[in-house]
Each structure stands twice: as C-alpha cells, then as structure tokens.
C-alpha cells in the first residue's frame, strides 16, 4: 500500500440522500432523476473502495435476505448480484427456474406467494416477459429489482454503463453517445436511453431500419420525453465525433422474422471495427453489455483492443449492484 500524507474530504457537489424520496423498487430508469442517478454513482464510488480491500466484506445487510429469481439464463448479471449481496453480508438465495410451459402470469404469482412466505427483503428477477417485475412488485411486500425483462428494461446494466462512462469521460453531460445495433430488441439500450437522457447526453441510435424502435421513440417524443435522442441508419453519421460507442448484441434468437438479410450482411454494414472507430473521437471508449458475438456486431480486434471498456463494465457491475442494494435498504423506516 502506498503512503500519502493527506486525503481529500467529501466533495462539495454530493447529493444528500435525505433530499430524495426513499425508493422501494428498481424497475427501470425512467423514474430516476439526475440527482438520484448521481447518488447511485457516488455510492458506487464508496462500494468500489470496499471491493479493493484485501477482505471484501462489510456487515451492512446482515440479516437481510436477497433472492435471485431468474427465468432466463444469465451469467454475469446473476453472479454480480450474488457477489454484491454477499459482500454486504446479506443471505443470498438463488432460485433457478427453467423455462416452463406453465402460463407465465400464474406461475409467477404462485412463486411470488412462496417468496412472500420466506420473507425475502429483496427479490431480483429476470423474466422473458416485459413487465413481469412490475407485476411482482405489486404482489409482494419486499423490494423488487429488475434484472432484465423481455425487451423492456435492464436498469442495473444501464447504471453500470453510466458509471463506466462517467469514469472514462469525467462527465456524461453533453457527451455524444452512439448506440449501435439491435436497438429494437435491447432492454439494455432502452434503460440506457432513460439514464443517458437524464444525465444530459446526446444519444444517437443507429442500426438497420428494421431494428430501430421508431414507433416507440415517436410515442416518447410526442409525450415530450427523450427529446435528446436522435436516430440514424448511417453508421458513419452515428460514429462521427462520438465521445463513446455502445454496441449491442445482435439477438440471433430473435432474427427469424427476416429483419436482417444475413449475419454477414449485418456485420458488413454495422460492425464496430477498427476502421469505423477512427470516425469517433480519439480514445472514445467502446462498450458492450455482453455476451458478445465477436465478428458480428463487434470485431475481435476492437473487443479486446485499447478502446474497449468491456472488462471494466463487468468489474463495475458488482459495485453498482451493491450501491443499488444499499440504497434500497436504507431509510425504509421513514415510509
């Protein structure tokens, strides 16, 4: 450990949690203000320090039960939630549910009732149906964290993306962020849109016309929301002068409907490779929520190159999820 003589005390721009209403669920980022996002970021800073210690354990959530309920496969999200809970000393129970033919609403409600009986404090759910976490949140007493539902939302992924961007760019406000790929099916992109818009970024969505959520975005614009989000089908326009590039996984399992001619055609037109990346600002970070299809939406050279922050995203995932768990647990007595 290096020895310095002094430390900097708290920054003057910190957000006071008491100035924000206590939060019970994390379902999407569309109800987060810029202050609340900043609070999550600053709390994540403190959690990062805990993760850098030789003994990564604090007693904060002792006696709390956290249940992960995953109806869809996942590695990094589930593992990072589990680790976040364990570092904070919560009891973590992993419920693994293979996708079944049981009608979704009914089976989810029954599971929720069982979980009610175990008095879980926080339920972390991933589900193939959009809105399943919102349904669960209405049924149970505890807190619900959405770990990805259908093509709807994946708020903790977006928070860790915001945190990674903030680390690399200093400030997100005014930054041009290009989101490239299968935006239509991406819950990561959708949650990121809310977060980036709240943080004041200029977001450009880019992809083939069949993979852009034009109707959804028009609805939001008509309601006066997401005004700073623009759309283009030109990869060159999207990358030109970008401060950061976010690539999305081409969801092959959802490409049966002829939305793209072929994977090769898609890669030729929209793959983030070293040549295209030269259009972005020098040193612009390249992000990917994983798992990657290397050679399709991103070239291996870029994925493992100097601009890639994909590993940092995974590392930040634990700290961000610790912050989310901590903020849900604090101040509940005020309700």
């Amino acid at each position: 450990m290096t020895t310095r003589s002094d430390v900097r005390p708290a920054s003057a721009t910190e957000v006071l949690p008491s100035s924000l209403p206590p939060r019970r669920h994390v379902l999407d980022l569309d109800d987060y203000s810029i202050e609340e996002i900043e609070l999550v970021m600053q709390t994540t800073d403190a959690m990062g320090e805990v993760l850098r210690r030789s003994i990564r354990k604090v007693p904060t959530l002792q006696g709390k039960t956290v249940v992960t309920l995953f109806y869809e496969p996942s590695t990094r999200t589930r593992v990072s939630f589990e680790q976040a809970g364990k570092v904070l000393s919560a009891d973590v129970i992993n419920l693994s549910i293979a996708s079944s033919s049981v009608e979704k609403g009914e089976s989810l409600l029954n599971t929720a009732r069982t979980l009610e009986a175990t008095q879980a404090d926080v339920i972390i759910i991933r589900h193939g149906a959009s809105g399943a976490p919102n349904f669960l949140a209405r049924c149970i007493e505890g807190s619900v964290i959405n770990a990805g539902d259908g093509a709807h939302a994946h708020p903790t992924q977006a928070l860790l993306d915001l945190y990674t961007l903030r680390q690399r760019l200093g400030s997100i406000e005014g930054a041009k962020v290009a989101i490239v790929g299968d935006v239509l099916h991406s819950r990561v992109a959708r949650s990121n849109l809310w977060g980036l818009a709240a943080a004041g970024a200029q977001v450009v969505l880019c992809g083939p016309p069949t993979l852009l959520p034009m109707d959804w975005l028009r609805d939001q614009h008509l309601q006066g929301r997401l005004a700073s989000i623009s759309v283009t089908t030109s990869i060159n326009d999207a990358l030109d002068g970008a401060d950061a590039v976010m690539t999305l996984r081409l969801q092959k399992e959802r490409q049966q409907d002829g939305l793209i001619p072929s994977l090769r055609e898609y890669a030729r037109s929209y793959q983030i490779n070293a040549d295209r990346l030269k259009l972005a600002k020098t040193g612009a970070p390249v992000m990917h929520p994983g798992p990657m299809n290397e050679g399709v939406e991103i070239s291996s050279e870029v994925a493992h190159g100097a601009a890639s922050v994909i590993e940092a995203q995974v590392a930040n995932g634990v700290a961000v999820r610790m912050a989310v768990l901590y903020l849900l647990a604090t101040g509940r007595g005020e309700e």
């Binding site: 020895t3 310095r4 430390v7 900097r8 403190a46 904060t60 604090t330 101040g331």
Partner: peptide, 27 residues
C-alpha cells in the same frame, strides 16, 4: 478518512447519510 455508513446499526430505520469512500493512505 473513514466512512462508517456501511457499519451502522440502524441501516433500515435511521437517517440516510451520504456514503463516501473510506480512504486510509497507509497500512
């Protein structure tokens, strides 16, 4: 600088303090 927020005994009921990174510059 020490932040004791993660070690409080009134996490749920107490006030909601701002969490700062603990930063001890030496072993």
């Amino acid at each position: 600088a020490l932040d004791i927020g993660l070690y409080r005994d009134d996490i749920a009921a107490g006030p909601r303090p701002h969490l700062h990174p603990t930063d001890i510059p030496t072993d």
